[in-house]
Design a protein around this nucleic acid. Structure first.
Lengths: 204, 204
DNA sequence: GATCATAAAGCGAATGCTCGTTCTTGACGA
DNA sequence: TCGTCAAGAACGAGCATTCGCTTTATGATC
């Protein structure tokens, strides 16, 4: 078996994915040609097609990976013990802390549009969103019990709103890489929790 | 039909734009072929190319139109005299009131991605966003003076947050047409103004 | 008001090009 | 020597766009 190590194969695959991510982020999925990716990776068509059956497979891999990063940022933040307001204020910065922020934000926007048209992608996205929403919902319910959030809010709907907030941040970050995550987070916190915890709302 | 009225020409042009919008919303800009649009409009290639020089011109027209609708909804809402909380709660419903909500939401998402790559589109989008942000900023400053919003918030950053909220709603609406604008708006209002106006914050 | 001439409006086969993908060939490690 | 990996020329499909022809509404003419 004249072969190469499994590590070599995995590394090659990752190289191709990285190259594809760079080009996809820059030009969008459908304005990026396979040749663009092949050139960016410094390989040949034959080589790339040994690792990925088709362009769609590349798009799906990149998209699912991109969703995973965002999901892990939100889920990771939710697990903390900090007040909800701090969590919200910190999410933009937490996303930026992943690195390669511009690329990630742009890929996220591309992925959102792609999911409207690509059923497997839509399914993957829906599943991950459901996870995030459910974690957020629980976190909000807890915050309500602690008197941090008005008990009149429906936790399910409030979760959608908070998720929307982060999506809006990502979108604006994709357009403007100079958008400051701390400023955005601080403004979100002040809007949502004007004077720290609301007095007199605790359920006990 | 030679030498026809200007109204006839405008109506034809509008027919083509409508057909293109339907297909673009369904399949995305780049998965929609000119033949798809031509078939949807019930015309021939020659006819369509008489009204639009190229596919990109179609994409730009549709995109700019889509942005305009969103801008007018937000700007229209901002002009009102209602409390900021009511404005925020009502924006999702106001967008839905435009009609053809699913199509509009999906087109908006497609446009966001396209603007990342298409300079003229990016410019048009940036200009409209600047308008909306500036109107929101003024509205927030007014609300702060009225004691509706914590004066600690930077109006500029707060405007970005509120804009992000609406963008998040549009995105979620594109994925899930059943998303209820009233629920979303109500949750946003409760989160941002937990107990109506905050007491004791008026500057006078 | 019927006929005609004109040029705009529409048609659709044809074009040229780009793209994703395949396949043959060669190189190289085991 | 054998199987794997990479290379890159080649291919066919599908795309946006063009162009020469046909159709037809309109204004002029009688």
């Amino acid at each position: 078996m004249p072969r190469v190590s499994a590590e070599y194969l995995a590394a090659r695959r990752e190289e191709i994915l990285d190259a594809a991510a760079r080009r996809f982020a820059a030009d969008g999925f459908h304005r990026t040609s396979m040749q663009d990716i092949i050139d960016e990776a410094g390989l040949s068509p034959g080589a790339v097609y040994r690792y990925f059956r088709a362009k769609d497979e590349l798009i799906e891999s990149i998209s699912v990976e991109a969703m995973g990063h965002i999901e892990s940022v939100v889920s990771g933040g939710i697990d903390g013990e900090e007040p909800l307001a701090d969590l919200i204020a910190g999410l933009p910065a937490a996303f930026d802390a992943l690195g390669r922020t511009d690329e990630r934000a742009r890929l996220a926007v591309q992925t959102w549009g792609e999911a409207l048209r690509n059923p497997p992608l839509a399914e993957a996205l829906a599943a991950r969103l459901a996870n995030v929403r459910s974690a957020l919902r629980d976190r909000i319910a807890t915050a309500q019990r602690a008197g941090e959030v008005d008990p009149a809010a429906d936790p399910d709907d409030a979760a959608k709103v908070l998720l929307g907030l982060l999506q809006g941040y990502l979108l604006q970050k994709a357009w403007d890489p100079d958008l400051d995550p701390a400023d955005f987070g601080r403004a979100a916190r002040v809007l949502i929790a004007p004077r720290q915890a609301m007095p007199g709302h605790s359920i006990d």
